[in-house]
Amino acid sequence: MGQDNGFHQGMGFAARLGTEMVAATLIGAGMGYALDWLFGTRPWFLALGVIFGGAAGCLGVYRTAMQTINENNENDNNETDSNP
């Protein structure tokens, strides 16, 4: 496990981003549907929920991606620093 190569990490990364996006959209839609059911305002909260859920999914993916890019950059810098 210490020698996880790029392929394995990339695959895990892709799986992580994909499910995160889907889960956020579904949660948004579910919350919208529940609010509609509560207030009887179908379909307005559902539509709003899907939009918010999608936004949450995109935000999550963006954050994870930026974090990984930053980590990779740091690793690259460290590697070049350690070389005399």
Binding site: A24, M31, A56
Partner: peptide
């Protein structure tokens, strides 16, 4: 705030 709540709740599901 709603977006953050949704992304919090999406974590256990994903």
């Amino acid at each position: 705030v709603p977006i953050e709540i949704i992304s919090m709740l999406a974590r256990p599901i994903s």
